[in-house]
Amino acid sequence: MALEARARYLPPVSIPVDHHYLPEFYLRRWTRAGKLYRYVRPIESARIHQKKVSPAAVGYESHLYSYTTGDSDHERTRLEHSYFQLIDDRAAKALVKLENMEPGSAIDHVGLVQFVISLLHRSPRRMDYLRKELTKRMLDVTGFDPSRTRDQNMIRDHVNDLLVDLISSDTVLPELVGMKVFRVPVHSMRRLVTSDIPIMLSQGTRNQGAFIMLPYAPDRLIIFAREENVALAFSTQEHDVLVNGLNDAIIRQAQQVIIAADDVERAFIEERFNPFTAPDGAGDDGLIRWIVP
């Protein structure tokens, strides 16, 4: 009886409704007194909209990764609370070690790589792109009807599974884990911004000049590269020039939102942020490939 009574009053399991494609631990690095600057352009002809918000109030969409099938809400939201939460927790711990110049473990390295890969694929626009591509491929399948709710749900659930495959790929993951990690402090009067697509990729990831870059704070950058001279090519640039180039790239590639630590870059963002058309040089996936300077 005592056990039954105790079970009756256990607190309910929290079901995540707001699925963050930009995790709060990452966005907190752009805060001052708990707030950051969020920039969006709601319609094509409008000026950008600037607002100071908390990290919890930006970079999310309700039920972005929810499955349409499952025995419970907890089961249907497993991608958010189990899969992405684990990736984000590992990356948060690895970044702290990187900041403190502490040696990281193999788990830390894999955690950072998976986090970076996840940022390429988990945004709403990227998810929508994957759903549209899968729908196109299914049009020749007998019995498939893209206007039918059942088939729309099937597409949604398959793309959720595909997301896991892309981020945990047995082909891509080992390839990127083989890269070295370089922490680059940026000493400039200007600050780095970030966005819903904050990753910069080289042309290909298998050649010796391959790299992946991610701003992880307004004055810090991570570079994954096979060769140290690739990281040096960026870190030895004049830092005002480096920030200008990185911010230009991040803003032009952004599809929904820009994040900044202050409002200094507002005019720069206004001039470049156009989420309604693909940037020059972007592939079918909307991503730009970059070269070593």
Rank of each mutant, 00 (worst) to 15 (best):
P23I: 11
I259M: 01
M101V: 13
G59C: 00
A106Q: 10
G59M: 00
L64K: 06
R76G: 00
E102S: 14
L134P: 05
L27C: 04
Y216M: 02
S66P: 09
R272S: 09
I199Q: 01
L232V: 05
A106F: 05
A5G: 14
V159L: 04
T68S: 12
R156K: 15
Y65I: 01
R220S: 13
R6E: 13
F182L: 10
A2T: 07
A46P: 05
Q237A: 14
P293Y: 00
V184D: 13
I251S: 05
V53W: 07
E75T: 03
I259C: 07
D280K: 11
D219V: 07
N207T: 10
K93G: 04
V186W: 02
L232T: 06
I43R: 14
G34L: 09
T277P: 03
P293D: 02
Q85V: 08
R90D: 10
I251D: 01
M127Q: 06
K132W: 03
L22D: 02
A233H: 03
V110T: 12
G111I: 03
E227T: 14
P279G: 04
L139F: 00
G178E: 08
R137Y: 07
D151P: 00
L242H: 01
M189V: 12
Q256C: 13
L139I: 04
A260C: 01
L64Q: 06
P215S: 08
I259T: 05
K136H: 08
K51W: 09
L86K: 11
M1G: 13
V243M: 00
M200Y: 01
Y65K: 06
E4Q: 08
G34K: 13
R191T: 15
R266F: 05
P11W: 07
D170C: 11
Y129I: 10
L64M: 07
D88E: 15
D263N: 12
A92K: 07
D88A: 06
I222Q: 01
H81R: 09
H109K: 06
A267L: 04
V186I: 12
P103G: 12
R272G: 11
D219I: 06
M101Y: 14
L232C: 04
V96A: 11
S45E: 15
G281D: 04
K180A: 15
I15L: 14
Q255R: 15
G283S: 05
R272N: 12
I288F: 02
H81N: 09
P279S: 03
D151K: 10
I259H: 01
I259Y: 00
H49T: 10
M213F: 06
M1R: 13
A210N: 02
D88N: 08
S72W: 04
Q50C: 10
T236M: 11
R6H: 11
K180Q: 14
P198E: 02
A260M: 01
V257Q: 05
Q208H: 12
I288T: 09
I288E: 03
N207V: 07
V264Q: 15
D89M: 13
H158Y: 08
K132R: 07
V116L: 12
D161H: 11
E227Y: 09
R122W: 00
I250M: 01
D240I: 01
K97N: 05
R122K: 03
